[in-house]
Design a protein around this nucleic acid. Structure first.
Length: 424
RNA sequence: GGAGAGGUGUCCGAGCGGUUUAAGGAGCUGGUCUUGAAAACCAGUGAUGCGAGAGCACCGUGAGUUCGAAUCUCACCCUCUCCGCCA
């Protein structure tokens, strides 16, 4: 959520930012409603002030035996007026809030222009796309031949876009999760969280999934719970409506969770394999930072995510996301893209974003620089560290041999208990 | 799921519908005393939001009753204890 004061004071700046995103601009309407709200609020407060003053005198008058009936008569009218004005203020507030919650974040000035992911800018690259002296197979073919992935069985028990992992496939998924968690906790200084996979509506609003993107989420029937689309939601909301002290910052959390996405509108894209699933595993990095240091924290966050890919020896590149591909909540975003031989291109495996105070304002996460200072919003950041299913897909494809076996990256051998997955 | 108890400021804990600008204590800050500290004593001290300010709001949340609600009514949420069920 943006600061209403910013919209009041610099409407042109906000309009320009929305124009960059090619977003509909309701700023003038918003300002008009805000003006009405403030007028009504002022009026209501004047009347309340009078009501309080008179109420204070009543006991005294009664004690002195004065007649309070005429006062009650008058105050009754006042009370009605206050109720009417309060209702008006509340109504306007609801309208304004609903609008505010649907306005996207202001992109950082350094975010490149552009409309689609094709306009994202490559920042750096690690290694080169894997070369094969045979025709490499896609991970869905490899996985089924090795009998470690079973998409048919998943369709049988659940439906499309789910996967059953089996044998060393299941173990590989688990190995990757543990490898990621160990690296981030032991080498990068993150504190591990294992969160609930369901959250209530407020949490989803706090991180920005709701109200605008309700159709992308799975809702649990008969409850007000949503399946989390990412651990970002529960972990960021750990500190909702809290005032932290400067000593607490930066807070760095790493969380493994399953993630659930309805992905309405994605039908037909990436229909085969592990790339786009309704349920997938992810290790997520979440940071809460002093606003002055949040962009430094974004850089180290990206580095931390990169390190797990380097450790696995997977070729990847880092791209800076253009304004058209930025997403609703982010002020700046880098993607890590891993080389996927079956696609013949790089595929997103991590998104690392600085939300600045956009989520913090929604979720009410503040800090005080010193005990006497006024609380201000923290900056929140998060990034995949990294997507587990896509990592497994990348390992299968990049580490495959001509005979259909798959080598296990050095770093995973301790977790796998073997250095190769062979066809049976 | 059932029964009971409870949600008040940083914490503990009072609070007949009207000087509650939320008692009292702890804590914290300053001071006196002391070689220094502790203790004792004195003084100060709620946080947050909106607002230029006066002011307004805030006692789990939301409605309601009333001239006036922390206090009464209703609904909901959460916590604790016991029972049931269960990995």
């Amino acid at each position: 959520m943006l600061d209403i004061k910013l919209i009041r004071q610099e409407p042109e700046k906000v309009k320009a930012a929305l124009a960059r995103r090619k977003e509909e601009d309701k700023i003038d309407e918003l300002l008009k409603l805000d003006g009405e709200r403030r007028d009504a609020l002022y009026e209501a407060e004047q009347l309340k002030s009078k009501q309080n003053a008179v109420s204070k005198q009543i006991p005294q008058i009664k004690k002195e035996g004065g007649d309070v009936a005429p006062i009650f008569e008058e105050m009754k009218k006042l009370s009605e007026e206050i109720k009417t004005l309060d209702a008006k203020v509340r109504e306007l507030e609801e309208t304004i809030d609903a609008m505010m919650l649907r306005i996207p974040n202001i992109p950082n000035e350094t975010v490149p222009d552009g409309d689609t992911d094709e306009d994202n800018v490559e920042i750096r690259k690690f290694s080169e796309p894997t070369k094969f002296d045979f025709e490499p197979q896609a991970h869905w073919d490899l996985g089924e031949k090795l009998d470690i992935l079973d998409f048919g069985k998943a369709a049988k028990i659940t439906g499309a876009r789910f996967t059953v992992y089996k044998d060393l496939g299941a173990r590989l998924e688990r190995a990757v999760i543990n490898y990621f968690l160990n690296m981030h906790t032991e080498q990068h200084g993150y504190t591990e969280i294992f969160p609930p996979y369901m959250v209530h509506r407020n949490s989803m609003v706090g991180t920005g999934q709701l109200p605008k993107f309700e159709e992308d989420a799975f809702k649990v029937v008969g409850t007000d719970y949503f399946l989390i689309p990412t651990a970002e939601v529960p972990v960021t909301n750990l500190y909702r409506d809290q005032i932290l002290s400067a000593d607490d910052l930066p807070i760095r959390h790493v969380a493994y969770s399953a993630c659930f996405r309805a992905e309405a509108g994605s039908a037909g894209r990436d229909t085969r394999g592990l790339i786009r699933q309704h349920q997938f595993n992810k290790v997520e990095l979440v940071k809460f930072a002093d606003p002055e240091k949040s962009y430094e924290e974004l850089e180290t966050l990206v580095n931390d995510a990169e390190n797990v890919l380097k450790g696995l020896g997977l070729p990847y590149r880092v791209v800076k996301i253009c304004v058209g591909d930025l997403g609703f909540t982010a002020a700046m975003k880098y993607d890590l893209e891993v080389w996927m031989p079956s696609y013949g291109r790089y595929v997103e495996i991590s998104s690392c974003s600085n939300f600045e105070d956009f989520q913090a304002r929604r979720a009410g996460i503040k800090f005080k620089r010193s005990p006497k200072d006024k609380p201000q919003f923290v900056h929140t950041l998060n990034g995949s560290g990294v997507a587990v299913g896509r990592t497994v897909a990348a390992i299968l494809e990049n580490y495959q041999n001509e005979d259909g076996s798959v080598r296990i990256p050095e770093a995973l051998i301790p977790f796998m208990g073997t250095d190769v997955i062979r066809p049976k």
